[in-house]
Amino acid sequence: MAVFFLRYGVALSISGAVVVGCIIIDVPFYLLLLILTSYAAWVTTAYYRYRVAIKRLSEQPTLIDEDEKMMEERHFSDVEKYYFRLLLSLNESSQMLSAHITNTLVLLGRMGDRVDQANDLAKNTELLAVNAMVSAARCGEVGRGFVSVSKDLVGISERAENDLKRLDSLIQGLTNSLTTVDYLPSNAAISWVESEMSGADYCLTAARCDGLYASVSGCLSILDDLYERYESTSQLDVRWLQLGEAIRRVVAGLRDTLRSLLNIVENLTRDVQLLSLSEHLNRHQLVEIHEGFLQFVDQHDKMHEIIS
């Protein structure tokens, strides 16, 4: 009740003020009665809707509740419960990885454009530095200091161009690596059970997960080195401010994305390894888990319909 009045406090205060104002200015009795009736009807309706909403939220089932309830209804053994929970984790990690790969590929395309922009900036900086060096050299002894600074800027620009080529190569390689990840099933859990039942090889192997992990981890190691160098250099040398900041932002964006991707791949690899190390299930247990997952997926879809 207190939450209701906190939520609708402003509207209730305004409505109450209107009623008091009508009494003060001596509004005719029938109008005052009409206002009071409307006010009472509005409060009653709002409170009823509030109670209905609270009741729906309290009665809304969660996936965990449905998961445990379904396993109890089907009288799963401890081994079947263990496999079911492990396969749930596998399915979640697989779906998260698939979605994250899609988002990462989109980001890599954007970062490729930013690398091109930073490369143009590096070339322009180098061109300006060369022109400044030539102009300073013509000034003789007076321009000797400017020649030294211009040479440093040329060196900075060349190093930035080399790093940007390295970044571009990294983006292209990672894009190709993620594009070839076509072995993620739409439902990893059901796919694993069906593979076990038919005796076929499961598409999501530990070796594939390890290969993807190594690829992403290698790229992340390179990005960490670049980020630390550009972070420290940008703070120490003002000549890096614009060019160094442009490169640092590209590297920072890629690092954050790949770290999230690496965590998901690590979780998926762990689940796949646990499945491969666990004891084999007999056909009856596989059938029970398969039917349980089909029931779980159906309940999951119905819950999404209720929520939406």
Rank of each mutant, 00 (worst) to 15 (best):
residue 119 N to S: 08
residue 235 Q to R: 15
residue 284 H to M: 07
residue 301 D to I: 10
residue 273 Q to E: 05
residue 219 C to M: 02
residue 130 V to W: 04
residue 216 V to W: 14
residue 25 I to P: 02
residue 186 S to E: 10
residue 180 T to F: 03
residue 238 V to Y: 15
residue 299 Q to G: 00
residue 289 I to N: 06
residue 231 E to L: 12
residue 97 L to T: 02
residue 152 D to W: 04
residue 78 D to S: 13
residue 121 L to F: 06
residue 147 V to W: 06
residue 211 G to K: 14
residue 284 H to I: 12
residue 243 L to C: 05
residue 145 G to E: 07
residue 75 H to E: 05
residue 174 L to W: 11
residue 6 L to Q: 09
residue 272 V to M: 07
residue 4 F to L: 04
residue 239 R to N: 11
residue 20 V to G: 00
residue 82 Y to P: 02
residue 106 V to P: 02
residue 8 Y to M: 05
residue 245 E to N: 14
residue 163 D to W: 12
residue 84 F to I: 02
residue 14 I to H: 04
residue 93 S to Q: 11
residue 100 H to S: 14
residue 236 L to S: 15
residue 202 Y to T: 07
residue 161 E to A: 05
residue 209 C to E: 08
residue 14 I to N: 00
residue 156 I to L: 14
residue 257 T to F: 01
residue 60 Q to K: 09
residue 147 V to K: 04
residue 34 L to Y: 13
residue 298 D to K: 13
residue 96 M to Y: 03
residue 259 R to F: 05
residue 140 G to L: 14
residue 252 A to H: 12
residue 78 D to Q: 14
residue 203 C to L: 15
residue 102 T to S: 12
residue 72 E to K: 15
residue 93 S to D: 09
residue 233 T to G: 00
residue 281 L to P: 03
residue 36 L to N: 03
residue 121 L to E: 03
residue 269 T to S: 13
residue 48 Y to T: 03
residue 124 N to D: 12
residue 240 W to Y: 15
residue 76 F to P: 00
residue 30 Y to M: 04
residue 107 L to Y: 01
residue 197 M to I: 15
residue 103 N to T: 09
residue 265 V to R: 09
residue 113 D to Q: 09
residue 268 L to F: 12
residue 308 S to H: 09
residue 199 G to R: 14
residue 290 H to R: 15
residue 264 I to E: 05
residue 15 S to F: 14
residue 134 V to H: 02
residue 291 E to A: 11
residue 291 E to S: 12
residue 241 L to D: 06
residue 244 G to A: 04
residue 218 G to T: 03
residue 293 F to Q: 06
residue 65 D to A: 09
residue 137 A to P: 03
residue 148 S to N: 10
residue 224 D to C: 00
residue 285 Q to W: 13
residue 220 L to G: 11
residue 109 G to K: 10
residue 231 E to P: 00
residue 221 S to G: 06
residue 51 R to I: 08
residue 242 Q to I: 14
residue 70 M to Y: 13
residue 251 V to P: 02
residue 213 Y to N: 09
residue 82 Y to E: 15
residue 74 R to T: 04
residue 214 A to P: 01
residue 301 D to C: 00
residue 167 L to S: 08
residue 83 Y to F: 15
residue 118 A to G: 01
residue 226 L to N: 05
residue 100 H to P: 00
residue 303 M to Y: 10
residue 91 N to W: 05
residue 86 L to C: 01
residue 100 H to F: 11
residue 294 L to Y: 10
residue 283 R to N: 01
residue 96 M to S: 04
residue 97 L to P: 03
residue 140 G to H: 14
residue 83 Y to R: 15
